[in-house]
Write a protein that binds this DNA or RNA. Sequence first.
DNA 1: TTGACATGTAACTATGTGTGTTACATTTTG
DNA 2: CAAAATGTAACACACATAGTTACATGTCAA
Lengths: 152, 152
Amino acid sequence: MSNDVRLSSILHLLLHLADASEPMTSDAMAKAMGSNPVVARRTFAGLREAGIVHSTKGPGGGWTLARRPEDVTLRMLYDAIGAPRLFAFGNRSDHPSCLVEQAVNAELNDARQQAEAVLLVRMEAVTLASLSKDFDARLAAIGMKRSDIRHA
Amino acid sequence: MSNDVRLSSILHLLLHLADASEPMTSDAMAKAMGSNPVVARRTFAGLREAGIVHSTKGPGGGWTLARRPEDVTLRMLYDAIGAPRLFAFGNRSDHPSCLVEQAVNAELNDARQQAEAVLLVRMEAVTLASLSKDFDARLAAIGMKRSDIRHA
DNA sequence: TTGACATGTAACTATGTGTGTTACATTTTG
DNA sequence: CAAAATGTAACACACATAGTTACATGTCAA
């Protein structure tokens, strides 16, 4: 699973978790991600440290959601998985002595900040609950109920 | 030179190019980038294909700006160097059959598009000329003229 | 208390991407 | 023709991430 795509996979799994009545094992997650259990545990370790999910050992154990779906924002998830830089460009050096470079950095930083602000506002607004609602709307649009479906 | 930092370096070099009366060799660029000539040529090849710079072979040859500084936008540069994805997250698959994933993708795409729009507007507005002007303002702020300076 | 089930994690391998380097072909100037 | 420059293929190297194996730890139930 590429780095780039991790957030999407995690959201997917968390939405399934939000509905599940029983803990989901790393094995099951690995299958759903097309990966393997160790990678799943590694990935979810960050979410556990952020208090978003909870893990229990032993028979019947696995991963559960530790918060209400409406309290888990996209922003929290993004931070929890190590928050790779949002934008694919950076500065050559942070405190350049060259004035040309200072001007370049000033522009780049400005543009980045502005776009980042927009993105973060959006990410705060999206929660597992809002995604779930969106999901139900999609189901309704094709005349189905949530209980009609069960897959990864 | 890391990928991340390329745009900043290129802007830096182009600003120098905009002022230079003679072509700049790949060797000189490599020194300014802290890299080597082949990498410099590789990097600028994209800009050449986009019609932003021009290269001439033979003695006295090298790289020159092919457009007026006010006609070279940050956006053009970004596209020309291969436009790495602006955002560090993507979708798990583009056309998922799972409805959960469709909902996730829809949200992510929306947020990305909105932030991207903001960023692109900014990038269209920034030109080599505007950066240059910014640069002069910085110089003036410390009581210097452009001719007082010459370095990479 | 033992055995099965699950996570936790260290250590290693595999892979992909980008950078750096060498080597050589090509073009241009004088 | 010689020197100076780009153009580019080919390869080596470094780094980050994914995947895998192996084993330790904790937990439940009989």
